[in-house]
Amino acid sequence: MHMLKIDNLHARVEGKEILKGLSLEIKPGEVHAIMGPNGAGKSTLGNVLSGREGYEVTAGSVLFNGRDLLALEPEERAAEGVFLAFQYPVEIPGVNNTYFLRAALNAQRKYRGEDELDSMRFLKLVREKLKIMQISDELLHRAVNEGFSGGEKKRNEIFQMAVLEPKLAILDETDSGLDIDALKQVAEGVNALRSPDRSFVVVTHYQRLLDYIEPDFVHVLAGGRIVESGDKSLALKLEEQGYAWLADAHPELAKAELAGERA
């Protein structure tokens, strides 16, 4: 049975169609990498799946464990087990990181009919997860993402994922802006969370991240659709040849749609 089934998804942002018939199926435990040139719709996919306002779905469907994901509010999707690691995690001054996480976890538990964690149990859980992410206690006392470096923000995203234990994690260009050490740390955190019943969608512009998070499948997103799928060798092919070769394989794609070719 599929965990996620996206069928012919069309979505618009500010009146402009970005996703134009995207289909994708993911089984539990699988890691799917989605690559593609800038402007292909990679980030749009993550935002649509997590229910961001301003992303208008005009056609198609998304089933998550058999439920119509698109009919749910963002917080309901989260409670169902969808987690988006943001490309640009927002800073929220005045909201304490620990408080925020506990509010999130308990809201999700409540939704699922589970009991809420008191602060003792919560802290115990958090301490365990901190170890996995090699994050210091100090981070917990700060406001959400406030004054964090780029690397700290990304690690904080993975840390939140560790605490919230989603079924499906979408990593939106989690590698962007990270140096190689920070990238490794983030990848280690992700790998530690891999399990047979948890799936990942790894959205990235570069093959580099996939050296550390090994995907089961690689898809190329261009012109709002998935135009190529394969195993990890596809990522290597992209690395060597760039996105230009797609133009030969897919003459229907406009040049401009491939113009975001990797630098």
């Binding site: 509010e73 963002p74 917080e75 989260a78 943001f86 925020f100 509010a103 999130a104 939704y111 959400v144």
Partner: peptide, 10 residues
């Protein structure tokens, strides 16, 4: 949106 995406109701 960030808060909601982590499961916190509106």
């Amino acid at each position: 949106f960030y808060l909601r995406s982590r499961g916190i109701p509106l």
